[in-house]
Amino acid sequence: MSAEVKKGDTLLEVRNISLSFGGVKALQDISFDIRKGEIRAIIGPNGAGKSSMLNVINGFYHPQDGEILFEGAVRDHMKPHQVARLGIARTFQNIALFKGMTTLDNLMTGRMIRMRTNLFWQALWKGPAEREEVEHRKRVEHIIDFLKIQSIRKTPVGRLPYGLQKRVELGRALAADSKLLLLDEPMAGMNLEEKQDMCRFVLDVNDEFGTTIALIEHDMGVVMDISDRVVVLDYGRKLADGTPGEVRDNQAVIDAYLGVSHA
């Protein structure tokens, strides 16, 4: 479909996106891009429209205006499960794991889009079905090792503590081997040690797997440390866009964070 995207080229671009819910303008004329191989942070105060932006990107919300380009091609109106097949995975602000299933099954479900044996072989659990299961199991075990969650492989995730659930959710998103990973506040509610672990994982994923990452985060220290570029939203509008240094020195951003009145 589209030409091979090299590191540093634009992987995803949103153009003039506007989204409103009744009277609430969640996003107003937002444009920015995400380059292949980078860690892109999206920041902003509560209710700025960050999660809504991710929901637009993965097809969960449909903006009234604007367009989205992925790998250089304009994307039509798509359902979330179609976007997943394009190569976009994500985690949620409020953990959205499959609570009744084990860690292993959660990650195996993450590989759904890559499995294709038909009903007949699956019913027999032989031949192609068994081979496929083993092949994907290997990949999933690699991710389990990477995230150091071997000991909870067979535990139903509903029983795990919060920090581990966040990690399993990252694992499930990784399992899809996507081109673009969207992380909605992966470190929220974690203690310092858990945060450091999670930062490490995000950097390693970016480094080892070469995955492009867009993440929403409130902890400014983390954002400044790990991201390549930052886009700042406030009240549904884009305030600033640039390297962490540029954004930190931007007067509009400082005002927004210090709560200067918008009157």
């Binding site: 993965n58 969960f60 359902k79 979330p80 499960h81 976007v83 997943a84 097949r85 995975a89 994500r90 949620f92 959205a96 794991l97 499959f98 609570k99 009744g100 299933m101 479900t109 993450g110 759904m112 889009i113 499930r172 899809a176």
Partner: peptide
């Protein structure tokens, strides 16, 4: 378990 997450996974 979570139909929204299921859909976003594909």
């Amino acid at each position: 378990d979570m139909d929204i997450a299921a859909e976003i996974i594909g």
